[in-house]
Amino acid sequence: MPRLEELQDLTTQVRRDILRMVHKVNSGHPGGSLGCAEFFVALYNELMELNEGFDMDGKGEDLFFLSNGHISPVYYSVLARSGYFPVDELNTFRLINSRLQGHPTTHEGLPGIRIASGSLGQGMSVAIGAALAKKLNKDSNLVYSLHGDGELQEGQNWEAMMYASANKVDNLISTIDLNGQQIDGSTDTVLAMGSIKGKFEAFGWDVLDIKEGNNLEAVIAGLKKAKTMTGKGKPVCVLLHTVMGNGVDFMMHTHAWHGKAPNDEQLEIALAQNPETLGDY
């Protein structure tokens, strides 16, 4: 089977994992998770240089930080299916005594996670710190991070953006999930941010658009392009244009499924649109 087709199958399976995880506990955030399935699959399978196993320091490998921690379902699914922990453990999402907390954490020792996130706006600073440590360690690997677009309303991001360009943190690729939705509505109605691209550029970042953020081929190509932009004295921003709820027709193009789980009937319809590929957990 061609590589792209394999990864398409993986993406579909990840979407099934997301839907089944949030349905089981009747909570969690399917919308943003579904919209970022292609990004996570591309990142962990085609972009990141990763060591065998997991250790916190991550020397000699690429690192990833999820700032918008509420899309933990997609993160957990891709980590499990990349071998960081047993796929069966996805069954424990949000249950008591689980390593798969509602929002990602290092506290329970889940392999693959290097910082807690959930309270928004902190991940870019963390990623900068890790990127600075890599430079001190003369480690040429990269640091990736992902942020929601609504999350940019948190002021700390702008402190981080200012710092990263002023200090030439050019081993960092921060991706913004540009789905235009947040809990209370569209980002334009909640707090219009104008041109996010213009703002990043004004803050001294190199910016790359991935217009088709739910086209796996386009995401892989875009991220590979972003990788070539590192090491040139500027931090790199990827604007990933996605559709919240992608892959499930009734969840798409609305903020309604940001933090709401499907009921039994809705799950059945959603899964029918994403037939099993690699096997359910």
């Binding site: 320091d57 020397k59 600073s125 360690n137």
Partner: peptide, 27 residues
């Protein structure tokens, strides 16, 4: 080379410090 002037941005400083520990630094 082991000092980071963050500017007047304490929130950024705390989280950059957290990130620096990943890679073995003691901030």
């Amino acid at each position: 080379e082991r000092f980071f002037q963050i500017g007047i941005a304490e929130a950024n400083m705390m989280c950059i410090a957290a990130g620096l520990t990943i890679g073995g630094k003691i901030p």
